[in-house]
Design a protein around this nucleic acid. Structure first.
Lengths: 166, 166
DNA sequence: GAGATATGTCAATGATGCTGACGTAAATTA
DNA sequence: TAATTTACGTCAGCATCATTGACATATCTC
């Protein structure tokens, strides 16, 4: 009564066109990449979502809610919870827009900058070590590869975003 | 009464040792990388966790529960729910070990292999396109970079895992 | 036979996301 | 000026994926 699965022909037609190693390495690498910050964030009662918000706010002082939503691609309800917590605990500050008073410009406080930098440095350390293993001259190739993985429709926006780090 | 955040000195000491572009590209790339499968999985009532289980079971026929837990690094309670669903819907099959009857050896059914391949091919397509952008000869460098991001304590295990795709 | 091991399961909880609906203030446009 | 749109906030409910802790069962090992 048991349906015998066939273990043999796993790649029916497209032969070995599937780069399984890159797929799996990406999974493992991302898992460990976010693992370091996760452990620290837990001490603050924060999660990965808080890190993302804090990171982008710190990197782009004056960012508006709408811009942040566009970057993170989550709903405003999802953002609101974590952002509210970051504001209430003094890591992020909101300033009403001078030109457009409907907007809220986000800024990391000194406390927020310190935490953000601490977390980013953990990831930087990991990246630097990995780069050292392949030669730092490969950094641009890796950056272009990662950019190539981004949705084509998003790529231009992201690259513009990266271009102006301030 | 308002604490003025300072936007200027964002990198107090370590200057520009933080590779922000690689940090952010990794985030965006991973987000879109898992986005494709996510949309399809939703049609099946599955989530990302189901994909991960199905993928590794398909790649490693005969995998035991303990081995799978070690790969995914989640608790058995977390695994149990998604695995049970995959078994009940006929994507994965469990076979009691012949030598050690306590073990459950996991196998993807034909149906499971088809779904797994379909999802993996989506990611493969994205990877192939990104590789084409940087030149396919860079694949080994990228693979080594990603391996370098993995926890040193895990790296050997993962690389051994990748080596024998069976 | 005792203890360790592999797995399964119940219950409660938390983090992160979602949809839908509604409200308010401010900007824009007719 | 009046109507509409935009930017943001919030309430309520829900889904997924993860957690911890406790306990049960079958099987293997010593």
């Amino acid at each position: 009564m048991e349906v015998r699965p066939i273990d043999a022909p796993r790649q029916p037609e497209p032969a070995d066109s599937v780069p399984y190693d890159l797929i799996e390495l990406f999974f493992f690498a991302y898992r460990d990449f976010v693992g370091d910050p996760d452990r620290i964030l837990a001490d603050y009662g924060f999660g990965r979502a808080h890190h993302r918000v804090l990171h982008f706010v710190q990197r782009r002082p004056g960012l508006t809610i709408a811009e942040l939503l566009d970057i993170l691609q989550i709903t405003k309800q999802s953002l609101n919870r974590v952002l509210k917590e970051l504001v209430e605990t003094g890591y992020v500050e909101q300033r009403t827009g001078r030109q457009d008073k409907r907007q809220r410009h986000l800024h990391a406080t000194v406390k927020g900058q310190e935490l953000s930098l601490r977390l980013d440095q953990l990831q930087a350390k990991r990246i630097t070590a990995a780069l050292a293993g392949v030669g730092a001259e490969s950094a641009p190739v890796i950056a272009r590869y990662l950019a190539g993985l981004i949705d084509a429709s998003e790529r231009h926006k992201v690259q513009g975003f990266l271009a102006k780090p301030l």
